[in-house]
Structures are given as structure tokens and as C-alpha cells.
């Protein structure tokens, strides 16, 4: 049932969920390409994961997107968009540029990437695309998450229409909407909220804890494998039950 040794590109693969995904997809037997902006992070990861091919790219730069796609020697069987910005600011301080920049990296860039990959025939028949969305946007609001929520809701809307068009090429596209996932970045954020606020927030999670990158990785592995061959256009909420309350 499981067809391993697929060529998979992870965008935003040098930190958080994307970093974990690189290791897990490689362990599943896939050939993994992983991109990130920071050359320092890439150097560090290359030492600990020598079998993953790391590529430096600033995805807000169209030339970098072209270069990234040109670098790929084989058509991709899998694409994971885990790049983007968790940009949070209350409306009082949120300006138009903040809003536009957030939409650009979280929504416009994945559109550009997929379009360019299709144009250059670098997505193979039967490929699987996974877009990392969030429960913020389509499923709930978040104070400070006006631009972020708009971008993540937009991503799901884009994914559903793309799923219909790409099905003709037997390409599947799905989204994952995580709740709070513990990463280096979110650990610092939670620390800044203070213990009492975190304890109170955790009460909103019926399963009583925040998620881990493993929780998301397991779903991506499923979506990359043959077992999900009849799954497209779906938004998978993985949130410990947060959106139930």
C-alpha cells in the first residue's frame, strides 16, 4: 500500500513543523528536499541530517522561487508548504503593509509556487500537495490574528478550488489546520503569556495539552502515501479538540 522513495519538497523546512517533517519523511523512505531562508540553520541541519537536500530560498523573492524550481532535477511527487509567517498584531497597530506582507507569504507565495511547478512540469502525475493552514481563520478567530487568519482561511479556499482543477492531472491537494503546536517559537510565545494564562488556555483543549510536531507529521505522512489516494480538497483539523469548544 505505501509507496516510499517519493521526491518531496518541504517549503519552510528548517524550523518548527517543517523541520520535523523533513526527518520523518526521510525516515519513511522518501527523498526529501527542504528549503529555508536562514543559511545558518541550513548549515546546522545539514550536519545532523546529511541525507536531506537543503536549499536556501527567500520565498518572497520571485527569483528565488524560480531558482528553487530550476534546481529540482526530478518532478516532485510531494510538496508541503509549511513556510509562512505567524504575524500577530492588534488592529490598532496593524498597518496595510503588515496585512499585505502576511497575505503574500502565507497565501500568494504558495499560489505562485504551485503555478510555477505546474508550468515547468515539475509536479508528477499522482503528486500530493499539503498546505499548512491553521484553526485560526476558517475555524475560529484569534485576537491579534486579523491578517494571519485571513491568509490561512484564504489558503483553504484556494486549496478547495485547486483540488478540482488539479484532479484532472491526478494531483491531490489538501490542507492541515493545526491548533497550538509546541515548537521553539511557540514555546517562547507561551512563556511570555505567563503560567496562569497558559493554564487557562489549556482548559480550551479537551485533550488537555497542546500538540506536538509529531501530531502534524503523522498526517502529512498519511497524505503523502498511497493510503490517501482518494483524498483531495480536504482540510484536516488537528487541534486536540480546541475547535469543539
Amino acid at each position: 500500500m505505501i509507496k516510499s522513495n517519493r521526491n518531496i519538497l518541504i517549503l519552510g523546512g528548517t524550523s518548527g513543523i517543517g523541520k520535523q517533517l523533513g526527518k520523518d519523511l526521510y525516515d519513511e523512505g522518501h527523498k526529501v528536499y527542504s528549503s529555508g531562508r536562514s543559511i545558518d540553520k541550513i548549515h546546522l541541519l545539514q550536519e545532523s541530517n546529511p541525507n536531506i537536500i537543503y536549499l536556501k530560498a527567500d520565498l518572497t523573492n520571485s527569483e528565488d522561487i524560480d531558482m528553487l524550481i530550476d534546481t529540482l532535477e526530478v518532478p516532485l511527487d510531494g510538496l508541503v508548504y509549511s513556510a509562512g509567517s505567524i504575524f500577530l498584531k492588534p488592529i490598532k497597530y496593524l498597518n496595510e503593509k503588515d496585512f499585505e506582507d502576511t497575505i503574500e507569504i502565507n497565501l500568494t507565495v504558495p499560489f505562485k509556487l504551485i503555478k510555477r511547478l505546474l508550468q515547468s512540469k515539475k509536479l508528477s502525475k499522482g503528486a500530493s500537495i499539503v498546505l499548512m493552514s491553521s484553526i485560526t481563520g476558517m475555524h475560529r478567530g484569534l485576537a491579534g490574528g486579523i491578517a494571519y487568519g485571513a491568509s490561512k482561511a484564504g489558503l483553504i479556499g484556494m486549496m478547495k478550488s485547486m483540488a478540482i482543477e488539479l484532479a484532472k492531472r491526478k494531483i491531490r491537494i489538501n490542507a492541515i489546520s493545526p491548533g497550538m503546536i509546541i515548537t521553539e517559537g511557540t514555546t517562547n510565545y507561551l512563556k511570555s503569556l505567563g503560567d496562569e494564562t497558559v493554564r487557562s488556555d489549556l482548559k480550551n483543549y479537551p485533550l488537555g495539552k497542546y500538540g506536538s510536531t509529531d501530531d502534524i507529521s503523522a498526517m502529512v505522512i498519511y497524505l503523502m502515501n498511497e493510503g490517501s489516494a482518494w483524498v483531495t480538497g480536504q482540510d484536516f483539523i488537528i487541534d486536540g479538540g480546541r475547535t469543539l469548544k
Partner: peptide
């Protein structure tokens, strides 16, 4: 700050944004 009754995620984000806007000092959450 963390012991204030009104301290929550929105206050935290607003405080950092206010410092950036008014004093041109960017402080990351960590």
C-alpha cells in the same frame, strides 16, 4: 507584567507593537 489582571495574549502583542510604533524598537517575543 505577567501578574497584571489584564495581561493576556492580545496585551502582549499590543505592547510589543506599541513599542515598535512609538519608540521604533523591535523586541521579539522571546
Amino acid at each position: 507584567m505577567k501578574d497584571l489582571d489584564d495581561w493576556d495574549s492580545l496585551t502582549l502583542l499590543g505592547f510589543l507593537a506599541m513599542i515598535e510604533n512609538e519608540y521604533n524598537i523591535q523586541i521579539d517575543i522571546p
